[in-house]
């Protein structure tokens, strides 16, 4: 059987997913799952848009707890402890900083099968300003017991991740952007939690990325590097916890080092996690591309703010070149700061 045949989503349906944002794909997928499994429960915190969809079709499996994220997680924990499979919807920043303690104690600490659907990840709501930036969530979530953290790279992978999360035994956090995603995966494949996807082969260095634009930019950087005769392996790390350690160790052993790319602060997120793994098992150079540790007191589109922060194709290329030749001094990263 081919990978596409193993996927729960058909080839025809796959292409159609890319006409929607990852957020819309998640909602459609959830509704499909809930139609055939009455344990699946949609817990909303007034995120908007469920009124004419899930809430109208399956009102018995839907609840809106209001603009109240602490209660969102507490009630979801109560639902999960009672045998239901709640998908709790909010934005990434509210999930991880506003209601952090409920996430820690009630959901993760109790190892309950709550699925947190966290939209507006990274800078995908950059136009709203810093109240809606989610740049710390991965660092916070990596410390949470029992928790699985998924960051689908595109709309199709979102459909697969939501299906995989639905029947995963413990708590799951699914980080989604707000916007339409570039298509990373050309066809459906057999998504497995914790198993990264190697999107391109290469022996000189490895670029490990998580999230829609970081993965997209990683693929762009690979093309530029290829033009210079450099072979970059590209890995879509769609599961940030637990990390795919074998894939990282292969990268550390088989290539010169790793460039990480994330729409998250450069401390404690993907770059930190990758560094922790390789430093213990097979030390190699790791260059981290992400948002500088600080407060983005500004506004702009997702792409604009990522560019300001240095999460760009050019910066990934520069970091790759620095990694291969540590003597380089004219790299983008150093210049920028």
């Amino acid at each position: 059987m081919t990978a596409a045949q193993e996927s729960p989503v058909s080839v025809d349906a796959w292409a159609e997913l890319y006409t929607c944002s990852a957020r819309d794909v998640q909602r459609r997928t959830l509704l499909e799952l809930a139609r055939s499994d009455e344990r699946i429960f949609c817990v909303d915190s007034d995120t908007g848009g469920f009124e004419d969809g899930f809430a109208a079709e399956l009102p018995g499996q839907y609840v809106n707890v209001g603009i109240a994220e602490a209660n969102l997680f507490g009630m979801s924990a109560g639902l999960a402890a009672s045998g239901l499979i709640p998908f709790a919807h909010t934005m990434s920043t509210f999930a991880t900083t506003r209601a952090c303690e409920q996430l820690k104690l009630d959901v993760a600490g109790n190892n309950l099968p709550v699925r947190i659907v966290a939209t507006h990840g990274g800078l995908s709501a950059g136009h709203y300003g810093p109240s809606h930036h989610a740049l710390q969530d991965l660092a916070i979530l990596r410390t949470m017991p029992h928790l699985t953290v998924l960051v689908p790279a595109d709309a199709g992978e979102t459909a697969l991740a939501v299906r995989a999360a639905a029947h995963h035994p413990g708590p799951v956090y699914i980080r989604l952007g707000r916007n339409a995603t570039p298509q990373i995966h050309r066809e459906p494949y057999a998504f497995r939690i914790g198993a990264s996807v190697q999107l391109a082969d290469g022996d000189d260095l490895t670029v490990v990325a998580t999230g829609p634009l970081p993965v997209h930019y990683a693929l762009g950087a690979r093309e530029q590097l290829a033009a210079q005769g450099i072979g970059a392996r590209v890995v879509n790390m769609h599961t940030v916890k637990p990390l795919d350690q074998p894939a990282l160790l292969r990268a550390a052993q088989e290539t010169a080092g790793i460039v990480t790319v994330e729409d998250h602060v450069v401390v404690g997120g993907l770059g930190g996690a990758v560094s922790e793994v390789v430093s213990a098992e097979h030390p190699c150079r790791v260059r981290r591309v992400g948002v500088a540790d600080g407060y983005l007191d500004t506004v702009g589109s997702e792409q604009e703010l990522l560019a300001d922060a240095g999460v760009t194709v050019d910066h990934i290329v520069a970091e790759a070149l620095t990694l291969l030749d540590p003597a380089r001094t004219d790299n983008h990263h150093t210049r920028r700061r």
């Binding site: 429960f41 009630m75 402890a81 009672s82």
Partner: peptide
């Protein structure tokens, strides 16, 4: 059923349990 200690958590937990019972037609109380 639920470890507690940090205040302000229990009522939401109990409300979730109560909602689950109500929606599934079970007679559990919280």
């Amino acid at each position: 059923d639920f470890p507690t200690g940090s205040l302000g958590h229990g009522l939401s937990l109990a409300a979730g349990v109560a909602l689950a019972a109500a929606r599934t037609g079970r007679s559990n109380r919280a």
